[in-house]
């Protein structure tokens, strides 16, 4: 195998792992925001709602 394969594979794996981290962060945040908005819309609130 040429060295190019090892270089390309390293960059692809790193990009995929980082993309996965970013995607996970965005999706998880949206899920929690929706869940919180849903609970608060049903009148179950807290003192602080900023953020």
């Amino acid at each position: 195998m040429s060295h190019g394969f090892f270089i390309a594979f390293s960059y692809i794996v790193t990009a995929l792992v980082i993309a996965g981290l970013i995607l996970r962060a965005v999706v998880d945040h949206r899920i929690q925001r929706r869940a919180l908005a849903d609970l608060e819309s049903r009148g179950i609130g807290r003192r602080s709602r900023r953020g």
């Binding site: 945040h29 919180l36 609970l39 807290r46």
Partner: peptide, 10 residues
């Protein structure tokens, strides 16, 4: 922090 708020409200 949001997850914990959701948990508390649930």
């Amino acid at each position: 922090i949001l997850r914990r708020r959701v948990r508390t409200l649930t």
